[in-house]
Simulated scan of single mutants.
Amino acid sequence: MSERDETAIPAKAPVGSTPGARLARNMMFYTVLRLLMVVALTLVIIGIGRLAGVDVPVLVAAILSVLIALPLSMILFTRLRAEINSDISAVDAGRRVKREDLRRRMDEA
């Protein structure tokens, strides 16, 4: 490796602190929370149906819970969505910097 190549290698950041790692963690957490909300709402809809003496099919309850969970998750998980958006911006900025650096180095060659 030449001296120039060694200086181009960035120092490794601790695992979980990079924007990409935070984005993956937050997206996974958000997805799990939304799925749990859908399952909970499905059970609530089936339970309310049983209390009312109506047998609600699971598929119908699941479809209703997905429709209810969408706006509800937008309200309940606002902070987490904002973190995800900032992580996406950070990842995009990093990609932009790397792309510009690559273009600069290709022009020099």
Rank of each mutant, 00 (worst) to 15 (best):
M1H: 14
E3D: 15
E6W: 10
T7K: 14
T7F: 15
P10F: 07
K12M: 10
S17G: 09
P19N: 06
R22I: 01
R22C: 04
M27V: 13
V32N: 06
L33W: 08
R34Q: 12
L35P: 01
L41C: 03
L43T: 11
V44D: 03
I45D: 03
I46R: 04
G47K: 08
G47T: 12
G47E: 05
G49P: 06
V54M: 09
D55I: 08
A61Q: 07
S65F: 03
V66G: 06
V66T: 07
I68V: 03
P71L: 05
P71E: 02
L72I: 13
L72G: 03
S73D: 02
S73K: 06
M74A: 11
I75N: 05
R79C: 05
R79F: 03
E83K: 14
E83Y: 12
I84T: 01
I84W: 00
I84D: 02
N85E: 09
S86H: 12
S86A: 13
S86L: 12
D87H: 11
D87V: 06
I88C: 11
A90N: 07
R95N: 15
R96K: 13
R96D: 10
V97F: 11
R99H: 08
R99V: 00
E100C: 03
R103T: 11
R105E: 12
M106C: 12
D107A: 15
A109E: 14
